[in-house]
Amino acid sequence: MTVTWTIFRREFASFFVTPTAYIIAAGFMLFTGVFFSQEFQVAAVRRIPINPATIPSLVSYMLVFFAPLFTMRLFAEEKREGTVELLLTAPVSEASIVVAKFMAAWAYVTILLGITLVYQAILATYAPQDIGHTILAYIGIWLYSGTVISIGMMFSALTENQIVSAFSSLLTLLILYVGDGVGGIIGNIQLSEIMRSLSLEAHYSTSFAAGLFRAEDAAFYAGVIVIMLFLTMRILESNRWR
């Protein structure tokens, strides 16, 4: 456990010793900020309430493009630099390494999500907010972000090239994201239902974003995270056998 904590701390700190974390955060805030201002203006002019899930829903789309940027280096960089050889010859289990790295990336996104609470605070100063709805929207996006990161991390373990890592996870995430929409235009209802169930977005937009909690959606995200962590461990182990 202390070992996992040690790796977590190093990994988390490594986000902030390079400009990467700050640049990604700046881009993130720029997008959400512009979007929020527009929504806020429209709502103010028309005197209609703003859905508390507006920003989290936007984030769910943005993460498809942003998450690969900070998951791409998780393992790819260690493999390229050779440090993975030292990690794997230290008395540390693969599970510790994988969990620590996953948690570090998730902690970084949690900070990004935390910053967007500023928007919710601004809303709250203008009109009373549905706190329950807001909390659920954020729990949902938090689980969603963990899922996205676990997928990105798995691709990072597959290669020592960060660009390959970033693009393969971006493509996968995009397919998983649009699965819902594509499912909607398919005639075959069963197939479209399967696509919807597998899509990342559908488990968020129709439940958490609407202020609902459905155990199946939380279980979907948790399940994908566990599977991805497991796969990453296996990929890491498989490097030894090649």
Binding site: T2, V3, T6, I7, R10, S14, V17, T18, E81, G82, T83, V84, E85, L86, A90, P91, V92
Partner: peptide, 22 residues
């Protein structure tokens, strides 16, 4: 290849391994 974490300080790098090795 002498694997190193490029973005760490000299002290931080050794401390990391000291902690990892408990």
């Amino acid at each position: 290849r002498v694997p190193l974490y490029q973005d760490m300080t000299v002290f931080g790098y050794i401390l990391f391994w000291a902690q990892l090795r408990q």
